[in-house]
Amino acid sequence: MDYHHNGFVYKQTDALKNSIGHDKKLPDNLFKYYSLSKKSVDAIINGELYASHPFDLNDVFDCSHNLWYANKPIKFENYEWFYDKVLDKEEVIKVFEQDSRQGHRKFIVEFWTLLSDKFGIISMSGQESDLLMWPHYSGEYGFQVKFSARKLEKDITEGRNAVLTPVNYVDKLEMIDVSERDSFIVPFIYSTNIKYKNWSYENEWRFLVEGKGMGIPYSKVGFETILEDHKGNDGARLIKYEVDLQEEITLGKHFFNPRRFVYNKMEDENGVKTIQVKVRECDESANLIGLLDHISFHEKLRGNVFLTGHYLVFEDVITPYIERGKEKVSLTKIGEGEYSLIYGLR
């Protein structure tokens, strides 16, 4: 039974690519924002995107099991099927009777949890230079990777049960009734796809990817469980893609700062600026070298490096203003942990 909400249609199907209907146009490019860390640098070097569990997400309402409710009694047969391998018949009856008086919350939460071990979410953005995305997701010290949306979609979804879809931004997070459904796939897909419209500045497109034993990070949830993390299969949430799909890398406004680098600035008569930088001995040294080496070793990236920042706008305005933009640079490795950056490129 399909579920319609805010112009989206959530469908009962085994193939995720057919599970969400909408009329949104896929942007030409998608962007991934990163803070600088060993995990983010390894992800770029290895061509991996992390498929998050709902507990990993920064919005506690995102993908929440609290979006599920039972308007009518859930059938006892569902309890029998779900608890078949862990409880005997008398225990199932007891759980059913107690849970029926409490809105079936135990069954709903535990069924949602079971499904959450089988799916992961990869968040991407259609926003290239949003004023909030950089400080929120890179702290201005990280970086952003640009992809062709079509090429990345093809790479991620071919050979996998996965779908790329826009987030459904809504005024209210309406709950979905699970009581009359034989399968909870539609409620789960719905809950992974809606967010408050306050988040719409992100212009988020996300991959929903199915896997086996992807893991559940129980320890990230406050006061809801005392369970230890379910580790899942090693690397199950790391989704591989071709490294050559990385089209551009933009470094944050404060990526090159004197806590990280020693640098020497030069400028020629044509206004072309060269800065030679050397990574300092610091906690971030290995990550900085790993990322910059990756960029300098790949011809496509080496010619498509940018620095973001704020830029003055004077043309055709009475009062000048500033906005976020980016400037192309050339990055060359000149020694171990040493690099040359050339600005003023056209």
Rank of each mutant, 00 (worst) to 15 (best):
H294G: 08
E248I: 02
L291G: 12
H254S: 12
M133A: 10
E153Q: 06
K220H: 02
D14A: 10
S296P: 14
Q144K: 10
G120Q: 04
F55H: 13
L208N: 02
F8L: 05
S138G: 07
S191P: 04
K328A: 03
L288V: 04
L307T: 07
L132E: 12
F184H: 06
H53C: 12
P217G: 08
V305K: 13
D293R: 01
I226P: 05
E336K: 11
Q144V: 10
I121F: 03
L30V: 09
S340W: 01
S200G: 05
D171N: 11
E91S: 14
G21N: 00
H310F: 07
I318N: 06
E174Q: 01
Q102I: 05
S40M: 12
K38R: 04
V186C: 02
T192Y: 10
G7Q: 12
V167H: 00
M214C: 11
R324G: 15
V329R: 01
G126L: 10
D88N: 12
L152T: 01
D14L: 05
P54C: 14
L307R: 12
V262Q: 11
H5C: 02
L115T: 13
F96K: 10
H294M: 10
N46V: 00
K195W: 01
H310I: 09
V60K: 13
Q102M: 05
V167I: 11
Q127D: 15
L57C: 09
L341R: 00
D62P: 06
S340M: 11
D23W: 03
I189G: 06
D283L: 14
K94E: 05
G232T: 15
Y311P: 09
F297L: 02
Y10D: 06
N287W: 13
Q276A: 13
I226G: 07
K39C: 06
K220T: 10
S123V: 08
D293H: 03
C63P: 14
